[in-house]
């Protein structure tokens, strides 16, 4: 992405319109989907969304705490801006 056009942070989101984005939300929620629309509050409309929710649980066999990832998909989704932590165009994004 050509970040020379980015003068205010929201330009980064503007440049991601109609692109696939990664959104990190409060409550250990992650979303990936095509960004349809957004506003100054970071309210967003995403299309073809995959949501990943991370929950921790205690494994009864060894008493260790483990992380469970629950995935689900949605055709169209509205995200309220105040739950957003981070937005990234997933190009060049790789997670370990």
């Amino acid at each position: 992405m050509d970040t020379s056009q980015v003068e205010v942070p929201l330009d980064l989101i503007r440049l991601s319109l109609d692109e696939k984005v990664y959104v990190k939300c409060k409550g250990d929620r992650e979303l990936t989907g095509k960004l349809h629309a957004f506003d100054q509050h970071l309210n967003m409309v995403l299309e073809a969304v995959e949501e990943t929710v991370k929950t921790t649980y205690v494994d009864e066999t060894d008493g260790e705490e483990r992380v469970k990832r629950t995935k689900r998909t949605m055709e169209m989704l509205f995200v309220r801006g105040d739950s957003v932590i981070l937005v990234s165009p997933p190009v060049r994004t790789h997670q370990s």
């Binding site: 992405m1 980064l12 932590i85 990234s88 190009v91």
Partner: peptide
């Protein structure tokens, strides 16, 4: 611990 890398990232100011 390093958990992820992002080419570009937008962080919402309230956080």
């Amino acid at each position: 611990k390093l958990k992820a890398k992002y080419g570009d990232a937008f962080l919402r100011g309230n956080n």
